[in-house]
């Protein structure tokens, strides 16, 4: 089993690489096909945000084991402009990309655990975990 693997995100192709990495690791861990799709989509959304708003960052994925409970953790990191109003960004219906239902609240619902830290002009770190059922 791999330890943490990371993908640099600088362009749209990197989003695909991050997805691929995530799907492989999820499959290896034993996630079912729907959960694989969910994890991959979560990675996709986070990578896309990095690409659209920060320009550059990275997605790190690692398998985790907590007292026998297995899961997969995704961490999205960037040194971009940061999020000014985190509360607003976590509210349903708020969207800057004109998409329907996606955004960070959507990612949060795809995964089991979610946390976000962001400082204006410094950067953003988002962490999301899905547990094996």
């Amino acid at each position: 089993m791999d330890i943490q693997s990371c993908v640099e995100v600088r362009n749209e192709w990197d989003i695909v690489s991050a997805r691929q990495l995530g799907r492989n690791m999820a499959k290896e861990l034993g996630f079912g096909n729907v959960d694989q799709a969910r994890i991959t989509t979560a990675i996709s959304e986070l990578a896309r945000n990095i690409y659209l708003y920060a320009g550059r960052g990275k997605i790190c994925i690692e398998p985790i084991d907590q007292l026998g409970r297995k899961g997969l953790r995704i961490v999205a990191l960037d040194n971009g402009p940061g999020i000014r109003e985190i509360r607003k960004v976590m509210e349903d219906g708020y969207t800057t990309s004109g998409g329907l239902g996606a955004g960070l609240p959507g990612v949060k619902r795809l995964m089991d655990e979610f946390s976000i830290e962001s400082t204006v002009d410094v950067g953003t770190e988002i962490s999301a975990t899905k547990w094996l059922r």
Binding site: V34, A37, T41, D92, G93, L100, G101, P105, R109
Partner: peptide, 20 residues
């Protein structure tokens, strides 16, 4: 499998709708 991926988008909308 392809359909499944495409459905995730609808899943987003569905869950947001519930929440709203």
């Amino acid at each position: 499998d392809f359909l499944l991926e495409a459905m995730i988008g609808y899943g987003f909308a569905y869950r947001e709708h519930q929440s709203l």
